[in-house]
């Protein structure tokens, strides 16, 4: 028994200390759930790795949390979507060299029955007003993500302070919010990439798109090495530059889910 015990202990220890991950050259990228869950990184990171030998480890969280991870120095670069917050992040000295990388758009998702009758309206502001007017269930991310901030911005532009039983703050990521919306036949603002790669749609369908207010640009920011000496500034810059290079932009454009392009090159 003692021997069995010893053997299993040794086994466990080797398992734990065991094979460390091969590539030591890597950066940590804090990005959004929309980009990671769509499968974008699985498509573009191998191309980048082949070109440079650098691996990219993606931590996918809401934009608010991603910026926070950057502020604490726990990531080397960010790829997020909240222009105002990104610029503030740079202005406050936490990051540098914000660049436009790509864009897609937000869309309004809702039940096929469309109780607030938003399918035909011209602007997303009117759509939101109708939802509030009808008191139809609306699922809000409520997690301080880029999508949540966009949603609050639309409410405020529509002149509505959303509150009441119809307005449900979920405090969860895009996928979880879509699952919940599907479960309670609610309207929900989503980014197109998450919607296209989402499989549990049930009665949900796309009801409104194309408004200029729904433009969704993604920006790349380097975490400022002056703040945190541990930041891998050189490696992160290679990634940063590659994203906006011709090769990087081509890799982004060639990513498709079910024959549909999810992100559009936007480097200047």
């Amino acid at each position: 028994m003692r021997r069995v015990f010893l053997v299993s202990l040794i086994l466990v220890v080797t398992l734990v200390l065991g094979p460390a991950k091969a590539s030591d050259q890597y950066i940590t990228l804090a990005s959004t759930t929309s980009t990671e869950q769509s499968g974008l990184f699985r498509h573009i990171v191998p191309t980048f790795r082949e070109a440079t030998g650098i691996d990219v480890r993606v931590v996918a969280v809401g934009t608010g949390q991603a910026l926070n991870i950057g502020r604490r120095g726990d990531a080397d670069a960010l790829l997020v979507h909240d222009r105002l917050a990104e610029e503030r992040f740079v202005d406050d000295g936490y990051g540098l060299d914000r660049r436009d990388v790509m864009y897609n758009d937000f869309i309004l998702i809702g039940p096929e029955s469309d109780p607030a009758d938003v399918a035909g309206v011209d602007s997303v502001l009117d759509a939101f007003r109708r939802i509030a007017g009808a008191g139809a269930s609306f699922a809000s991310r409520g997690d301080d993500s880029g999508t949540h901030r966009k949603e609050r911005q639309i409410w405020s532009e529509a002149g509505i302070e959303p509150a009441g039983r119809w307005y449900r703050e979920l405090g969860s990521g895009m996928g979880a919010a879509l699952n919940t919306a599907a479960g309670m036949d609610a309207y929900v603002l989503a980014d197109r990439a998450s919607w296209l790669s989402f499989r549990n749609r049930q009665e949900l369908t796309l009801l409104h798109e194309g408004d200029d207010a729904l433009f969704n640009p993604y920006g790349s920011i380097l975490v400022h090495p002056d703040r945190h000496r541990s930041v891998k500034a050189d490696l992160a810059r290679q990634w940063h530059e590659w994203l906006v290079s011709e090769e990087g932009q081509k890799a982004i454009a060639s990513f498709k889910v079910r024959d549909e392009q999810l992100f559009f090159p936007y480097a200047q």
Binding site: K21, T28, T33, E36, Q37, F41, R42, R57, V58, V59, A60, G173, M174, G175, A176, L178, N179, A182, S197, F198, R199, N200, R201
Partner: peptide, 22 residues
């Protein structure tokens, strides 16, 4: 951080696939 191929384990993979609606 549920990093693909580095720190993704069974439970975080399950959470991820749930949120992708799969």
């Amino acid at each position: 951080g549920n990093i693909d191929g580095v720190t993704r384990v069974m439970t975080t993979a399950i959470a991820l696939e749930t949120s992708r609606g799969d």
